[in-house]
């Protein structure tokens, strides 16, 4: 299993109120699978994704990535793991506005240790892969929402991670662009064997993934496998 969680819980305290965002979630995800997490707003899917990705510390429970209990790692080691093993995609434009497309793609390399090879060449290849070879010197404000999302995909792949975590990556895109981005995800999953975990509201998109996990009130209530 490339991802495994054990009784994962997250509670927030707002004033006197205790909110249980995630309640004892146990999941196992095989390498190379495309998993979608669906559910209503506030069901805990984004919180679950951020705990799997090492962005939010769980209140209880464990997250294993490739057998490593990530929440036992120091900040430095956990950051290194995020840098090397996980690529992130967010709902909003997550590019750095002062850097152009190719610089945004190369950005994770700035935080990595002992990166070898021609980073610029790899960044160009990835931009070509996402169909933006001609826009590599444009800054985010000169790119459309779909193009920005594709730059973010290229950035997520620059360190050749095993896992891509995507939090409603097509949330604010029109239908056509959403479809293009999803096609790109499926291609990367199929051709490069990357494991995808994607949070989405869109049941149509979820149906195109290998497995759908349905969440409600912080718990996984259903697991559906698609042909």
């Amino acid at each position: 299993m490339i991802i495994k969680t054990e009784h994962l819980c997250k509670t927030y305290k707002i004033g006197d109120q205790v909110i249980e965002a995630v309640k004892g979630v146990d999941i196992e995800i095989e390498r190379g699978k495309f998993v979608s997490i669906v559910g209503h707003s506030g069901s805990g899917k984004t919180t679950l994704l951020s705990m799997i990705g090492g962005l939010t510390r769980p209140t209880h429970g464990k997250v294993y990535i490739d057998g490593i209990n990530i929440w036992n790692l120091s900040d430095e080691k956990l950051s290194e793991l995020r840098n090397k093993k996980i690529g992130f995609m967010f709902q909003f434009s997550s590019l750095i506005p002062t850097l152009n497309a190719i610089e945004n793609v190369m950005l994770p390399v700035a935080f990595g240790k002992g990166v070898s090879g021609d980073v610029e060449r790899r960044a160009k290849e990835l931009l070509e892969l996402v169909g933006l070879g001609h826009r590599m010197h444009n800054v985010p404000s000169q790119l459309s929402g779909g193009e920005q999302r594709r730059v973010a995909i290229a950035r997520a792949l620059i360190n050749d991670p095993d896992i891509i975590l995507a939090d409603e990556p097509t949330g604010d895109l029109d239908r056509e662009t959403e479809d293009e981005v999803m096609e790109l995800f499926l291609k990367i999953n199929r051709d490069f064997g990357k494991t995808f975990v994607m949070v989405t509201h869109n049941p149509e998109l979820a149906k195109r993934t290998d497995i759908t996990l349905r969440m409600e009130n912080g718990s996984i209530i259903a697991r559906e496998e698609h042909g």
Binding site: G53, L55, D75, E76, L78, S79, E80, R82, N83, K84, F88, F90, F92, S94, I96, L107, P108, F111, G112, R155, N159
Partner: peptide
């Protein structure tokens, strides 16, 4: 804040 969070997500540690 958002940008700093994104930098952390893509591998920047606290020292970075």
């Amino acid at each position: 804040r958002k940008e700093l969070g994104i930098l952390r997500a893509i591998g920047a540690n606290r020292r970075h």
